[in-house]
Amino acid sequence: MATGGRRGAAAAPLLVAVAALLLGAAGHLYPGEVCPGMDIRNNLTRLHELENCSVIEGHLQILLMFKTRPEDFRDLSFPKLIMITDYLLLFRVYGLESLKDLFPNLTVIRGSRLFFNYALVIFEMVHLKELGLYNLMNITRGSVRIEKNNELCYLATIDWSRILDSVEDNYIVLNKDDNEECGDICPGTAKGKTNCPATVINGQFVERCWTHSHCQKVCPTICKSHGCTAEGLCCHSECLGNCSQPDDPTKCVACRNFYLDGRCVETCPPPYYHFQDWRCVNFSFCQDLHHKCKNSRRQGCHQYVIHNNKCIPECPSGYTMNSSNLLCTPCLGPCPKVCHLLEGEKTIDSVTSAQELRGCTVINGSLIINIRGGNNLAAELEANLGLIEEISGYLKIRRSYALVSLSFFRKLRLIRGETLEIGNYSFYALDNQNLRQLWDWSKHNLTITQGKLFFHYNPKLCLSEIHKMEEVSGTKGRQERNDIALKTNGDQASCENELLKFSYIRTSFDKI
Score class of each variant (00 low, 15 high):
N308V: 11
C255I: 00
N179F: 08
I201F: 13
H127Y: 14
E238D: 12
S161M: 15
E71L: 12
D177H: 11
K100S: 09
I62R: 01
V55A: 08
Q276T: 11
C235K: 02
S161W: 05
G192P: 05
K100C: 15
P79R: 08
L155V: 13
E130G: 09
G142Q: 00
I122R: 00
L50Y: 10
H212D: 07
V265N: 04
R145N: 01
T194S: 09
Y259C: 08
I163Q: 01
K191W: 00
Y87V: 02
R145A: 04
L260T: 15
P270L: 10
F116H: 03
A119L: 01
L29E: 12
H307Q: 12
C239R: 00
C228T: 00
E33F: 02
H28I: 06
F258N: 04
G142F: 00
S317H: 14
L131M: 01
C328E: 00
Y118K: 02
D101E: 12
L64P: 02
T250D: 07
Q276A: 12
C215V: 04
H212P: 13
T107G: 14
E238V: 11
I185F: 13
D288F: 15
R74Y: 14
L64M: 04
T199P: 03
N149S: 03
P270H: 08
I56Q: 00
V253S: 08
L60N: 00
T189K: 14
D159G: 04
Y304N: 10
K129Y: 06
P246A: 09
P31K: 08
A198G: 02
N105W: 04
C255Q: 00
H214V: 13
K224I: 10
G132H: 00
P36S: 14
R298S: 11
N179S: 09
V167D: 05
E314T: 05
K67H: 11
S77E: 06
I306F: 14
M125L: 03
C255N: 01
S296G: 14
D72F: 06
L89P: 00
G183D: 14
H214S: 09
L99G: 03
Y171M: 05
Q276L: 08
R141Q: 04
R263Q: 08
R92A: 02
T45R: 14
P79L: 05
D101L: 14
D169R: 15
K251C: 06
K310T: 12
Q245N: 14
